[in-house]
């Protein structure tokens, strides 16, 4: 049920776009209003979400580490795994965002053998699939910039050449397309393992179907239901420079691709895809592990009214003296 529902939601969206273009010529709604609205929702939502995170207090130093903390000089500490300096945190973040370092330590627990012993083992497939998915996504998005930049910079041409290294056809397929498909298929099917199935929510599947739909429509757009790229670029320039022209010449597949992306954008700030900002803002990652050297001030702290022993002693000085009880400050 939780798989079927989001699946049909995405299918319904696709049919909606298809019907809108085929039967109602809704170019103005699908080609102009939806992109603007979705983009505005995305930007506003993104900013609001990040600001909400920014003003959330971090009461404790909750950095999670897996290395020796910096302490005495003769104990070697782990510079990246348990960073005590800003440079260390920076390097850790860099590895985390570029190479998903902590995900590569992913473990799997299993009841093994007849005696059903609990054992742990490395499980790097998730890391591999995630890396394939995200890096391909980055390359695809960068290559798409050719529709947004004029003149097209040379590095995009270089990226294109690299990506179409197997010059298979006159419209060569891109290596990144194959890799991203493999990546997302793993990310999808891993959710059907019993262990993962019960922690998966409809929203998890929805995102995967949505991105899957974008990838499938993109590949179809390139190789089968070809778009008229010349008009696509003209159309996009119209949108960017607020001079939109409704245009019908691209065919339905382009609208499916385009509107699915708009929906993804609009949904982005309210979904778990905000991990792209969240990874930088997670206190388990971006705080130095120096709680022994430097006090982490809880922002909730207010000046507590304390009554110290010295003050207490001073207050009852005479009574203490009378009773012959020794005093810290001397019996004088």
């Amino acid at each position: 049920m939780k798989v079927i529902l989001p699946f049909f939601l995405v299918i319904a969206i696709v049919f909606f776009i298809y019907g809108g273009i085929k039967f109602y010529d809704a170019h103005i709604i699908l080609g102009i209003i939806i992109p603007y609205v979705c983009f505005a929702v995305a930007i506003v939502g993104f900013v609001a979400r990040v600001i909400k995170w920014a003003i959330s207090p971090v009461p404790f130093n909750i950095t999670t580490v897996c290395g020796q903390q910096k302490s005495l000089p003769f104990i070697r500490h782990s510079f990246i795994e348990s960073p005590a300096s800003r440079t260390g945190v920076f390097i850790r973040m860099l590895f985390e965002t570029l190479f998903f370092r902590s995900l590569s330590r992913n473990d799997r627990a299993e009841l093994y053998g007849n005696e059903r012993r609990l054992i742990y083992g490395r499980d790097r497939y998730l890391w591999l699939a995630s890396i394939l998915f995200h890096w391909s996504l980055l390359i695809i998005v960068l290559r798409h910039l050719r529709f947004f930049l004029e003149p097209v910079p040379h590095w995009i041409l270089f990226l294109q050449d690299l990506d179409s290294l197997f010059q298979s056809h006159l419209t060569p397929f891109y290596i990144s397309n194959v890799l991203i498909s493999m990546g997302i298929l793993y990310l999808f099917f891993r959710r059907f393992k019993k262990r993962n199935y019960y922690i998966s929510l409809p929203s998890d599947y929805f995102i995967l179907f949505l991105i899957g739909g974008i990838i499938i429509s993109g590949i179809l757009l390139r190789h089968i239901y070809r778009a008229d790229l010349y008009s696509v670029k003209v159309f996009l320039y119209g949108l960017i420079y607020l001079n939109p022209v409704p245009f019908g010449g691209f065919g339905v597949m382009f609208y499916i691709h385009f509107c699915l992306i708009c929906i993804l954008l609009a949904y982005l700030p309210y979904s778990k895809l905000m991990h792209m900002a969240g990874v930088f803002l997670s206190p388990t990652r971006n705080i130095r592990n120096d709680s022994r050297a430097r006090r982490h001030i809880n922002p909730w702290n207010y000046p507590v009214k304390v009554h110290s022993y010295e003050e207490w002693e001073k207050e009852f000085k005479d009574a203490l003296k009378e009773a012959g009880i020794p005093q810290e400050g001397g019996n004088g």
Binding site: I43, V47, V50, I51, W53, A54, L145, F148, L149, E150, P151, V234, Y237, I240, Y241, N243, A277, F280, L281
Partner: peptide
């Protein structure tokens, strides 16, 4: 965080500025 957010938004809008810079905003 705010500075990073502004930097991020600048990157998002970079293509818009690029074409203004090269003077090809209305190039067909």
């Amino acid at each position: 965080i705010l500075i990073s957010l502004i930097l991020f938004l600048m990157v998002v809008f970079l293509p818009v500025g690029y074409n203004v810079y090269t003077g090809k905003t209305a190039y067909i």
